[in-house]
Amino acid sequence: MEGNTVKRLSRLRRHRAAGPMLLVFALLTIGTTFQVAGAVTTSPSTVADRSAAIAEGKQLFLKGCSSCHGLNAEGGAIAPSLIGVGAASVDFQVGTGRMPMADMSQQAMRKDPVYTPAEVNALANYVASLAPGPEVPSEESLNYERDGSVAEGGELFRTNCAMCHNFAAQGGALTQGKYAPTLMGVEPKHIYEALITGPQSMPVFSDKTLTPEEKLSIIKWIKAAEAEPQLGGVALGRVGPVTEGLLVWTLGIGLLIGVAVWLAMKAR
């Protein structure tokens, strides 16, 4: 009985059958790398780059966002002002595909982003140029594997996040049809941005009350929960006793009654 779960996970990588799961992971990894790489190559390093990005962002904004958010991002009847929301907010909302909103439903959903990473960056630069606000965290500052602690992250997650996102970050219900989305498969950058900007129903978690290291710990815990294999069998959605009850009322008692019917049937 040597080893801990970290060891378990490393063993798991070696033992994982090269099935469809691997393929999906590979694709995801490639996709993520590509996206990150794209973001890196387009991140403006000089003032000139930045002003070019701002100009491009303004054009994109006028075309795609101004009908709701106003020509100068001052907000409108159906959409809030974006002055001072910062680059992080734009990167989160547009980068996760929440904006532009497909329809005026209860809340914006995560979907495939409409804009390329470069375009997202330009939009973020433009909105950030209107008034100062939270910036997109640098990649160096997002090294959660190095700077985070998984156990501490779990404790912080349960205190600050689980009440909406559920104990295993699977999401949960809010009032009037709103919901806290699942955090499975969300990029660390986007989790971080959500924490500092408080998108939609979510409150803001200030750096003084939840330090950057603590935020990284939370991300580390979420990623560990995401990668955690099913230690006790099919996880049933990790939503607690409701699905367990459903299973026992269907498969459990169903199997037993099936056998009982066979038992009481006369043999031919």
Binding site: G154, E155, R158, T159, A162, M163, C164, H165, N166, F167, A168, G171, G172, A173, A180, A225, R238, V239, G240, P241, V242, E244, G245, V248, W249
Partner: peptide
């Protein structure tokens, strides 16, 4: 996954057994 109990924490979807 639930974590140890403390009265200051809670999970969304806290239900009893059926």
């Amino acid at each position: 996954l639930y974590g140890p109990y403390t009265p200051g924490q809670i999970s969304a979807g806290s239900q009893p057994d059926w």
